[in-house]
Design a protein around this nucleic acid. Structure first.
Lengths: 338, 338
DNA sequence: TTGAAAGCGCTAACAT
DNA sequence: ATGTTAGCGCTTTCAA
């Protein structure tokens, strides 16, 4: 038979309400009483019934993670964020549900509405690129559902986590500059994603700092996929005289596409062409030569964003927008200019 | 204020219990009454409170998807299965939670226990490679948690979904044979995964059917990753005289690794070397040349597995182990033998 | 610092 | 075919 709160109370010689207090980390419980209750819980292997808690307490202990499965970045990125969010939720005995959405879809908002009406999440975690989707933010605020986000475009009034992607991109390109490269190309991501903008901005920062002139022919469109990296690289490497000696792709998948095409043109990476990416997905270290890239701690970012949300839900203050550090993973795909 | 079942009952002029019957699709409600209740629900925008339902009905309406995030196959595979499971759950107003596990970890079972104790899922969906992990199956049966699985190794007594991977692999290799290849290599997946065994078996079936002798040098170990495909291909293409003219990799990531290495050896795919994979992940169609592969309908498989589970949970019969069809996606990476 | 009573919104069991 | 009653296991008052 299931062990109930009442059973614990009897065992510990206190009232159910006191056990409830201990369970919810409330004040006004003598330390010794608390210990006794905790011991009883432990001894009886007590687990509160989530539904009973939700019903009586009018909160679901549920966090929903919203993501776009339309044109998302690499799926490993979302998978890692998901793991991080889940980890934080587990730690605080919240449960997590995931909810794919299509940012193009006309039923976007109604699907969010349905989620809220059906499951009553106490809060939601937003992932790129839906972190700044205005109609969504508006609806969440109307329905008073707190949210935290990963890498929002606008920082004002948001809680969650971000990385200085612009600075990271700048550092990566600066590294190429320091290797003597002067013709450095950039493969763009999807324009509407903040990531694309920041990485482009960082690229430009580095060129400017080095006194290099920006060449429009060296900035080509991509879409965060391997295939789009292939297409972009063909365009880039077809440039006869003005061919770049280094390519900074806005993510690892596209960088892999660039390395792929290098072979077609008889170019050896990194001897003839340096290539670098962004994200440090598993692919990066599997490629040959291993890809130099910017490590983005996706898993931790999911964790931190969820933590901030949970802090607000649990009345632990308002939650902040936390910055996490990037790091440059300089591997074998970048070297001195030919 | 929240609309409750009682409010709907009043509006429809029936008792709460009748509304409950309608809600749960129970028998013994006059058709006209049912309609009236349904109309009232609609008009009042009524949504049952999941926690109240769980508490009173002693069921959680929760399905947990268990997966291994230790040495999993490509993450897009799991992501697609997840989407499929979620779709089925949504349809039947169940909620879904995900639970990463580490099959190596000593705390595997205790983590599953914690999941069950905390969240009381009505059932779980198992994904490879944990579909046949005996201690898990044992514990689930002890705790009477129904399960459905995706691609289990042993079929007896299981419910869920599977594909005839052996036959699919055979067909893929038969295709290579029909193109005139006689030296066909195979890159193995992780040995403990059923997928690896079936795909190897299919490879052998095809060779045998064609009267080709199996050459141990042409069967090399891989681990389902791009990097492992690279390593395997190096081994394979280093073979001077006996070099294969075609490679069947046990998944797409490894096939991409093989194509990658082909360039290093000055081999053009498919002219000098035909390459094919398995799974039809997004990568397959992004590669250049586009990869010939076996399409495994992962998303639908997740959906079907969840459906079978839900059928049993909802008392719709015992649930079956459903077979889904594969299809050969013959693209540009395979052609006639040189 | 602790406890008693009254629900939270729904369903099970038993009527009718 | 429909209604009545009594909880499910917890938290919220409010009182002591």
């Amino acid at each position: 038979m299931r062990v109930r709160l009442e059973d614990v109370a009897r065992e510990a010689g206190v009232s159910p309400k006191t056990v409830s207090r201990v369970l919810n980390d409330e004040a006004n419980v003598k330390d010794e009483t608390r210990k006794r209750v905790l011991a009883a819980m432990e001894a009886m292997d007590y687990h509160p019934h989530p539904s009973a808690r939700s019903l009586a307490g009018n909160r679901s202990f549920l966090v929903a993670m919203l993501y776009d499965n339309n044109d998302n970045p690499t799926s490993s990125y979302l998978a890692e964020i998901q793991d991080g969010v889940l980890e934080a939720c587990d730690e605080h005995h919240y449960s997590m549900m995931v909810r794919p959405l299509r940012i193009g879809g006309s039923d976007f908002i109604s699907r969010v509405d349905a989620l809220i009406s059906h499951h009553h999440p106490d809060g939601v975690v937003l992932t790129p690129p839906i972190t700044d989707y205005a109609p969504l933010l508006k609806r969440l605020s109307e329905r008073e559902v707190p949210n935290a986000c990963v890498s929002p475009m606008k920082h004002r009034g948001r809680i969650g986590v971000f990385m200085d992607e612009r600075e990271a991109a700048r550092a990566m390109v600066e590294h190429l500059v320091s290797l003597g490269h002067t013709r450095i190309a950039h493969v763009l991501g999807i324009a509407s994603h903040g990531a694309s903008r920041w990485r482009l901005a960082g690229y430009r920062d580095a060129l400017a700092a080095a006194g290099l002139r920006e060449d429009p022919a060296l900035i080509v469109q991509g879409a965060f996929t391997f295939g789009s990296g292939v297409t972009a690289a063909r365009e880039l490497l077809a440039l006869k005289k003005k061919r770049p000696t280094a390519v900074f792709a806005a993510n690892d998948d596209m960088a892999a596409g660039v390395m792929w095409v290098a072979g077609e043109y008889g170019l050896k990476v990194p001897r003839d062409l340096s290539v670098c990416g962004f994200d440090d997905t598993p692919l990066a270290s599997q490629l040959w030569p291993a890809l130099s890239t910017v490590r983005q701690p996706s898993r931790e970012m999911g964790r931190v964003a969820a933590m901030q949300l949970l802090d607000t839900l649990r009345g632990r203050g308002p939650g902040k927008l936390v910055q996490v550090p990037y790091s440059l993973e300089l591997r074998d795909s970048t070297t001195t200019a030919p």
